Lab assay of single mutants.
Amino acid sequence: MGFKLLSKLLVYLTASIMAIASPLAFSVDSSGEYPTVSEIPVGEVRLYQIADGVWSHIATQSFDGAVYPSNGLIVRDGDELLLIDTAWGAKNTAALLAEIEKQIGLPVTRAVSTHFHDDRVGGVDVLRAAGVATYASPSTRRLAEVEGNEIPTHSLEGLSSSGDAVRFGPVELFYPGAAHSTDNLIVYVPSASVLYGGCAIYELSRTSAGNVADADLAEWPTSIERIQQHYPEAQFVIPGHGLPGGLDLLKHTTNVVKAHTNRSVVE
């Protein structure tokens, strides 16, 4: 069995187990497998329904001669939608809004960016022009300005110390501490036991640490421990890039980060 097929099978099995364990909360999309990078042309966006009122959005972007996937989250909030992270750029984010209108038909009224990198804030200006209120932590807003990236308009308070959590509509926002970046936030959907790890969490097929220019490698494993301790009931975990899975993604990420750190020390 090929690795790609095995990865998709694991996603399907995880979703099936969740649907059985929580039949009222989960209505997993039966329309197909989780979209992969090879299936999404740059400039297009796919939506994948995880649970009743919960979707991931998947886009792709060219970077350094390669094409990478990027995940975000959409959560229903009454007759409105909360968006977590842009679709990595203005063109993708405009396509995301169009796809949401086509498939869901509810307005996106608020959006949260989970850290300051372009795959999370690139497209904020498109959201703002569409009347979406954009939010991020003060740290993310400051770092985005320093980096020359787009800056969300509103500040999220109460997320300055490791372990801080605040309720934001249908989700809980959690600051686990520094990891992929010093400002990275985690998003949890309690009604569906869905954990969105953003770039602080890796997919299972990833074996290298990737972009760690703004990471705190020493603190990252401790931050992941905080996530595990705060959300032990999480059933569906979405990484910032690639295929979702279960809580095993947290341990896998820790292993990859520690291996990278150990290699760096040896070198």
Rank of each mutant, 00 (worst) to 15 (best):
M1Y: 07
G2F: 15
F3P: 07
K4L: 06
K4Q: 07
K4A: 06
K4D: 11
K4M: 13
L5W: 14
S7G: 07
K8L: 07
L9W: 15
V11S: 11
V11L: 08
Y12P: 06
Y12C: 11
Y12I: 11
Y12R: 09
L13Y: 13
L13S: 15
T14G: 06
T14F: 07
I17L: 11
M18D: 12
M18H: 15
M18F: 14
A19C: 15
I20Q: 12
I20M: 12
A21E: 14
S22Q: 12
S22R: 12
S22W: 15
P23C: 13
A25R: 14
S27Q: 14
V28E: 09
V28S: 12
D29E: 10
D29A: 11
D29F: 08
E33S: 09
E33F: 09
Y34S: 08
P35H: 08
P35Q: 09
T36E: 14
T36I: 14
V37Y: 15
V37K: 13
S38E: 10
E39D: 12
E39K: 12
I40Q: 10
I40T: 14
P41Y: 08
V42P: 15
G43L: 05
E44L: 09
V45S: 07
V45I: 08
V45H: 04
R46V: 10
L47G: 04
Y48Q: 15
Q49Y: 15
Q49P: 14
I50S: 04
A51L: 05
D52R: 10
D52G: 11
G53D: 14
G53I: 08
G53Y: 07
G53K: 09
V54P: 02
V54M: 05
W55P: 04
S56R: 15
S56V: 15
S56F: 14
H57Y: 07
I58V: 15
A59Y: 05
A59F: 04
A59N: 10
T60C: 05
S62R: 10
S62C: 06
S62Y: 04
S62K: 08
F63M: 07
F63D: 04
F63C: 04
D64L: 14
A66G: 12
A66H: 14
V67C: 06
Y68N: 06
Y68Q: 03
Y68C: 04
Y68L: 06
P69T: 15
P69H: 12
P69V: 15
S70A: 04
S70M: 03
N71Y: 04
N71T: 05
G72P: 04
G72E: 03
G72K: 03
L73D: 03
I74F: 05
V75R: 03
V75I: 08
R76A: 10
R76M: 11
R76Y: 06
R76P: 04
D77W: 09
D77Y: 07
D77C: 03
G78W: 06
G78Q: 09
G78E: 11
D79V: 09
L81R: 02
L81Y: 01
L82W: 04
L83I: 09
T86C: 00
W88M: 00
W88N: 00
G89K: 02
G89S: 05
A90M: 09
K91A: 15
K91E: 15
N92R: 01
N92G: 07
N92E: 02
T93C: 01
T93Y: 00
T93A: 02
A94S: 14
A95D: 08
A95L: 14
A95H: 15
A95N: 13
L96K: 00
L97G: 00
A98F: 11
A98E: 12
E99T: 11
E99K: 13
E101V: 09
E101C: 04
E101W: 08
Q103D: 14
Q103H: 15
I104V: 08
G105M: 10
G105C: 06
L106W: 08
L106K: 12
P107I: 09
V108L: 09
V108P: 10
T109F: 08
A111E: 13
V112R: 05
S113D: 03
T114P: 01
T114H: 00
H115T: 00
H115V: 00
H115N: 05
F116Q: 00
F116W: 15
H117D: 00
H117S: 00
D118R: 08
D118L: 12
D119S: 01
R120C: 05
R120H: 06
R120Y: 02
V121W: 01
G122W: 07
G122P: 06
G122E: 08
G123Q: 04
G123M: 05
V124I: 10
D125R: 08
D125K: 09
V126Y: 10
V126P: 03
L127F: 06
A129D: 12
A129Q: 12
V132G: 02
V132W: 01
V132A: 06
A133E: 13
Y135L: 01
Y135D: 02
A136N: 04
A136F: 03
P138C: 05
P138W: 08
P138Q: 09
S139C: 04
R141K: 14
R142H: 13
R142F: 12
L143R: 11
A144Y: 05
E145Q: 13
E145W: 12
E145S: 12
V146E: 13
V146H: 13
E147S: 14
E147I: 14
E147P: 06
G148A: 08
G148C: 05
G148Y: 06
E150L: 04
I151Y: 02
P152G: 02
P152S: 05
P152R: 02
H154G: 09
S155T: 14
S155I: 13
L159E: 02
S160Q: 13
S160K: 13
S161A: 13
S162M: 10
S162R: 14
G163A: 07
D164S: 13
D164V: 08
A165N: 11
R167P: 12
R167E: 13
F168C: 05
F168H: 00
G169Q: 05
G169Y: 06
G169A: 06
P170E: 05
E172D: 08
E172K: 04
L173R: 03
L173V: 12
F174R: 02
Y175L: 02
Y175P: 01
Y175M: 03
P176H: 03
P176A: 06
G177M: 00
A179C: 04
A179D: 05
S181I: 00
T182N: 13
D183Y: 04
D183S: 01
D183F: 01
N184Q: 02
L185T: 03
I186N: 05
I186D: 02
V187Y: 00
Y188L: 01
Y188R: 01
Y188D: 02
Y188G: 02
V189C: 02
V189H: 05
V189A: 04
V189M: 02
P190D: 11
S191G: 12
A192R: 11
S193A: 12
V194A: 05
V194R: 01
Y196V: 02
Y196L: 03
G197Q: 01
C199N: 01
C199D: 02
I201M: 06
E203T: 06
E203W: 01
E203G: 06
L204K: 14
L204C: 06
S205H: 09
S205V: 08
S205M: 08
R206E: 07
T207R: 13
T207I: 13
T207W: 08
A209Y: 04
G210D: 04
G210Y: 01
N211A: 05
V212D: 07
V212I: 09
D214C: 05
D216I: 08
D216H: 07
D216V: 10
A218G: 13
E219V: 08
E219N: 08
W220R: 03
W220L: 03
W220F: 04
W220T: 00
P221W: 05
T222Y: 12
S223F: 05
I224E: 01
E225Y: 07
E225R: 13
R226F: 01
I227A: 04
Q228T: 14
H230D: 07
H230W: 08
Y231K: 01
P232F: 00
P232Y: 07
E233S: 12
A234E: 02
A234L: 04
Q235G: 09
Q235Y: 08
V237L: 07
I238H: 02
P239K: 01
H241D: 04
H241G: 00
H241C: 03
L243A: 15
L243N: 15
P244F: 07
G245A: 06
G245S: 06
G245Q: 04
L247S: 15
D248T: 12
D248C: 07
D248V: 09
L249Y: 07
L249A: 01
L249H: 05
L250G: 02
L250E: 04
L250W: 02
K251C: 07
H252G: 03
T254V: 14
V256W: 02
V256E: 04
V257D: 01
K258H: 12
A259N: 11
T261R: 11
T261I: 11
T261E: 11
N262F: 10
R263P: 13
R263T: 14
V265S: 12
V265C: 05
V266G: 14
E267W: 09
